[in-house]
Amino acid sequence: MPKSASPLPEVTYTPESRVKHPLTLLREMGQDLLASRELAWRLMVRDISAQYRQSLLGFAWAFIPPIVTAIGLTLANNAKVLNVGVTDLPYPAFVMFSMSLWQTFTEAINGPIRAVTDAKQMLAKINFPREAIILSQLGQIFINFGVKLLLIIGLFIWFKMPVTWSVLLAPVALLHLIALGTAFGLFLAPLGALYQDISKGLTIFLGLWLFFTPVFFPVPQDSTFATIVQLNPVTPLLVTTRELATTGVVSNPIGFWLASLLALGGLFLGWLFYRLSMPFVIERMSA
């Protein structure tokens, strides 16, 4: 194919900090996000195909953890070993639903970190829009949640739980939850590529975080523990999603909007941090 005489796109690389030209930076970010759509799709198809080609149980892995946890906790609750109080929904449904949401949140945090780790070879050798690997992981999170949704619908049918029109708003709250997780992940991913401490510490930290989130228990009141749980940004997002899908009554709208602000603002800042720091990480990480 003969080369056309039309002007070629021109790019200049300098050592200057990109922060000094904020408008150019924002424009580049937008361009890269658009340019990475197809690549993200391609990578997602690749990863899912490869993952399930090597697996017998396949998609079933997406809803085994919630079921297993629910069985264990329900037995413990019935035996009065645990005393979680009264929940709006039947306890097994409560646990499975909340557990699915929490799992989605942890997947969202781990998403960018996993994306960078899996793509280390590519990152070290080719310059491509790096938003693609993040989007590809996000796509996988949505697909995994889609599988969990089957479980949740099954739950609703089994326990004969009523559904109000507010269930249509539940995905919005869920998106905010995913946004919050991705925001944390974007801050941690570049650092995690340099220092192993990040991924090790994160596993422990998430385990701890789980205890301060009303996943196994309803939102507590009037205690130090309750204060911590209510300050936890995941709480309003997770609880609101649960409530929208079931009872239709949102108990903490202000908390929800504050947490959403944190989530969306954090997502943008995380994206900025990821974009600015990745070139420096790439030249120093082990490929």
Binding site: E10, V11, T12, Y13, T14, P15, A124, I126, N127, P279
Partner: peptide, 22 residues
């Protein structure tokens, strides 16, 4: 190819770059 940031100087590239580095 734009992977590393130079410490001094400038690089100007016109057109699509394909690296056969790996």
């Amino acid at each position: 190819s734009g992977l590393l940031r130079p410490d001094t100087g400038t690089v100007t590239v016109r057109g699509r770059v394909a690296p056969l580095i790996a």
